Simulated scan of single mutants.
Amino acid sequence: MDTEALRSFVRAAELGQLQHAADELGVTQQAVSKRIAALERELAVRLFTRTARGVELTFDGQAFLPHARTVVAGVERGIAAVRRESRALRIDVLGFRSAQAVILHDYWRAHPETELDVVTLRADDPHVAVAAVRAGDIDASFRSVTDPATLPRDVRMVHVLDFPLELLVGPAHPLASARTLTPAQLRGHRIWVPGIAPRSEWAEFYEELAADLDLPIDGTGPNFGVEVLLETLADSPEVATLVGARDRLVWPATYGLRRIPVERPTIAYPLSLLCRRADPHPGLRAIIDHFRGLATVPAPAWRPSWRGR
Rank of each mutant, 00 (worst) to 15 (best):
T28I: 07
P171F: 08
F163H: 15
A63G: 04
P112Q: 13
V145G: 06
L181S: 10
L165T: 01
Q185K: 10
T182P: 12
A80H: 15
T220D: 04
R276I: 05
L121Y: 11
V228P: 04
R50P: 00
L165D: 03
P126C: 05
L294A: 04
R156H: 06
A63W: 12
W302I: 00
P152M: 07
R190Q: 12
L242H: 10
E231N: 13
G78D: 07
L47H: 05
D154Y: 13
T3L: 15
G136D: 10
E238C: 02
V82C: 06
P298T: 05
A176I: 03
K34H: 13
A22E: 02
R11I: 03
R259E: 01
R134Y: 02
R190W: 09
D162Y: 04
I138W: 11
S236G: 06
L233F: 05
D247V: 11
Y255D: 11
D124V: 09
R7T: 00
V193F: 06
V45W: 09
R134P: 01
I191R: 14
A37H: 14
R259V: 03
T220W: 00
L186Y: 14
D117V: 00
A52K: 15
V32T: 05
P261V: 10
V228N: 11
T114S: 14
L89Q: 09
A110R: 15
Q29C: 02
D106F: 03
P152S: 06
V145I: 02
A37I: 09
E115G: 12
P66G: 01
T254G: 13
A13K: 01
S272F: 14
L18W: 08
A210N: 11
E42K: 15
R83H: 10
F142G: 04
A5S: 15
P152D: 04
A5G: 12
L271M: 15
G74N: 11
I79H: 15
V32C: 02
V27M: 14
R303H: 06
P174R: 14
V71A: 06
